[in-house]
Computed example of a mutant assay.
Amino acid sequence: MSRIAYVNGRYQDMRDASVNIEDRGYQFADGVYEVCEVRSGQLVDMPRHLKRLQRSLSELRIAEPMPLSALSVVMHEVVQRNRVRFGIVYLQVSRGVARRDHGFPTKPVRPSVVVTARSIDPAKGADNCARGIKVITVPENRWPRVDIKSTALLPNVLAKQAAREAGAYEAWYVDGDGFVTEGSSSNAWIVTQDGRVVTRPDKSGILSGITRGVLIEALEALQIHFEERPFTPQEAAGAAEAFTTAASMIVMPVVTIDGHVIGSGKPGPVALRLREQFHRFASFS
């Protein structure tokens, strides 16, 4: 079956879908995006994703392309047209098409909107979870405004590639003070030897992940002790467990960091429980 994309008001076959070569998203990465999990044909935590999209657009002074309710309709339609039961839906908004100039267009332009969806075999994620994943650390080299979900992801691309070349699944950034910030496409967590779940505060240095936010609510409801504070790779290496979170992987146990075995070297009970319980606390639409 051909995949269908939504591009600036039209649903098109992916083979025919395109944007103008002077779209600022293409030329300057002047845009933002969201990735939402699709589970049993429903979108997971979509209102939170759209709220974060709204914030990212505001921070970059990009106009909202349409009301959030209309974006919701488009996202659902793309999921349905692609018959996605389990997978992701991707939404990108750029500043729009204008003559190439670093400054904003002098005349108002219409933002560009692209929505795609694709299936992901849930068994693959389950297999990765059963084994646990490997993580490497890399120096933090991104711009400071990582709180904006910008399409400017070249440092993340290079970090992910470094992980793959090292036989790992993910790379965690380490800042100039020696603390873990987040992964190239995920948030980073550890579980201390006395059972405290720890992740970096979202005040600086990380994107405020939607899965991260839902998981914090789950931790509180499940009465699991939780701390927001920085941690070092050395503390992570000595932790009882580690895991990473994102819409595309939910909760994924980490079994090695830079070759150091975490805990027993197998997915830990806290991460597995949180993965199992996560969707009880998520919203569906």
Rank of each mutant, 00 (worst) to 15 (best):
5 A>K: 06
6 Y>Q: 03
12 Q>Y: 01
17 A>D: 01
26 Y>K: 14
28 F>S: 04
31 G>D: 00
32 V>I: 12
43 L>P: 05
49 H>F: 11
51 K>M: 03
53 L>M: 13
54 Q>P: 06
55 R>E: 14
63 A>Y: 00
75 M>N: 07
87 G>A: 14
94 S>G: 14
99 R>A: 10
104 F>C: 05
115 V>H: 08
123 A>C: 01
126 A>V: 03
127 D>P: 00
129 C>M: 06
136 I>V: 08
138 V>R: 12
142 R>K: 14
147 D>P: 02
149 K>F: 03
149 K>G: 01
151 T>K: 08
159 A>R: 04
159 A>F: 03
160 K>D: 01
163 A>G: 13
168 A>T: 07
169 Y>P: 00
184 S>C: 10
190 I>W: 11
190 I>F: 07
191 V>A: 09
194 D>Y: 13
206 I>L: 09
212 R>G: 07
212 R>C: 11
216 I>S: 12
216 I>C: 10
231 F>R: 06
232 T>H: 11
241 E>C: 10
242 A>W: 07
247 A>C: 12
253 P>R: 13
258 D>T: 09
262 I>T: 04
262 I>G: 05
263 G>E: 07
263 G>T: 13
266 K>L: 12
272 L>N: 12
276 E>Y: 04
280 R>A: 12
284 F>Y: 15
